[in-house]
Simulated scan of single mutants.
Amino acid sequence: MLVLDWVAPIFYCVIVVLQLHGGDAKDLKAMCSTCRQITDNFNKGFERTAKKNFGGGNTAWEERKLSKYETSEIRLVEILEGLCDSSSFECNHMVEEHEEQFETWWFKRKTKNPDLFKWFCIETIKVCCPKGTFGLDCNACVGGSDRPCHGNGKCDGDGTRAGDGKCSCDRGYEGEFCLDCAAGYFNEERNDTFSLCKECHESCTTCSGPTNHDCDKCKSGWEKDEEGTCVDTDECSKDSSPCKDDQYCLNTNGSYSCLACDSRCSGCMGPGPDKCRTCAKGYKDEEGTCQDINECELPDPVCTEENRECENTKGSFNCRCASGFQEQDGVCVPSPEPEVSQEVPSSEGAYTQTAKLSEQHEDL
């Protein structure tokens, strides 16, 4: 039994260490996140209960007999009950597992260790690390804990017991220490511990300064002029347009766009009916602008079928049945006369009989 008394604790410690070292990085980060949430909610609960008391009628008696609510176990319980949502298993499990530590801090450590997150999450249950450190031993991130990744990136596992401390550089920076400038950026300032990268001019692939005069190489869509400056290539000025027949070319910095011609155009050089190469069918050129042709006003009628009349539309026309006629089997036939009802008195004096006006005319 004596052997078991000291073997069991050692075995338990070994298991815990193995779990920590072999634990999934996401799980370790999640534990720190849960702990931070708990301590944040604890601080909110502490503020929420700041002006409460025991709720009795004689506060002076309560404080004298029951001690002050401010430091009471009742207040602690109220705060603990509001730390987690009922659906959050991880949060409730952590609070339940470490309830004794909360009591210790509340009654014995709070005065000397007012930062609950630091005391509980970092120093006591050890699921988090101080800012700028990472991993099981809370090692300093690359660049130091004060400026992880030299201020130009994020340290993997920063503030948790997870991660490998490698830097994930911000946009514009690269390299193990995030001190080098990525392609399209140049160093405005640089020393062994500090680097400030600025973006090159939009025309540069690489550069030594901020303007299009400082390009080492031009991007596609740009070309160097006689002075070595990267200038825009006007793709739209070429003899053969890069766009389709029903589109016009619009030059942009470093590129171009193909936009649809106006519907009145058959090919165009720009937007609107005044930029047409030729007018589309149903339109004609009037003083340089393509306008609709009113086919209904042409000398020769366009609607030749019997009882049809012309209706002009944009770029075309319709032949519809004239007034008083309707479409039937592809021809226009007279519309039927509307039925008119008339009430006549019955032998009993009530209006019960309806006769068609057309039938009355026939009887006459």
Rank of each mutant, 00 (worst) to 15 (best):
G163W: 00
A8Y: 13
C310L: 02
A350F: 13
K284G: 04
T252S: 09
G157D: 00
C249S: 12
N53Y: 05
P148H: 00
L83T: 02
F117M: 03
D262T: 04
A260P: 10
V95D: 00
L179I: 04
F325C: 03
S87Y: 07
K198P: 05
D156Y: 00
T160I: 01
C265M: 06
T354G: 06
E123W: 01
F107R: 10
C276P: 00
C303H: 05
P242G: 01
F42T: 02
D239K: 12
C303T: 04
S240M: 11
Q37A: 12
G270W: 04
E90A: 10
N312R: 05
G57L: 12
Y12A: 15
K68Y: 10
P130I: 05
D164T: 03
S168Q: 15
F325W: 09
S358F: 06
S195C: 08
S346I: 00
P336W: 05
N43R: 10
T124D: 06
S341E: 15
E306K: 15
P130E: 09
T34K: 02
T278G: 08
H150M: 06
E78M: 07
E73D: 14
L76P: 04
T111I: 14
C319F: 04
D137E: 14
Q326L: 15
N43L: 10
S341N: 12
L298S: 15
S323Y: 06
W222Q: 03
C138M: 00
A50F: 14
S208L: 10
S33H: 09
E202L: 11
A162V: 02
T133Q: 01
T229D: 09
E70Q: 14
D300K: 14
F186L: 07
C200Q: 04
Y69R: 03
K131M: 02
S87E: 11
E286V: 13
W6T: 08
F102K: 01
K26G: 07
T133W: 00
C197I: 01
H213R: 14
K118Q: 10
E47V: 06
E97C: 06
E227Q: 13
D158E: 13
S86A: 09
T304Y: 02
G184Q: 10
E103K: 14
K65G: 05
D137P: 03
A355C: 13
G82D: 15
C268Q: 07
C204Q: 05
Y248T: 01
F11M: 14
T160N: 00
H150N: 15
A260R: 13
W106G: 07
D115W: 04
K314L: 12
A355T: 12
D146L: 11
P242F: 05
E100N: 09
D262W: 07
E327F: 09
F117K: 07
Y185V: 03
K314C: 11
A60K: 12
D262N: 13
M269G: 15
K52C: 10
N113G: 01
Q353N: 09
R36E: 15
G165W: 02
C319G: 05
E297K: 15
P334A: 11
L28T: 00
A182V: 05
L116Q: 02
K244A: 15
D363G: 07
C265L: 06
E311C: 10
G22E: 12
R264I: 03
C138Q: 01
R161K: 13
Y248H: 08
E339N: 11
C84S: 01
P345W: 08
N58K: 10
N312I: 02
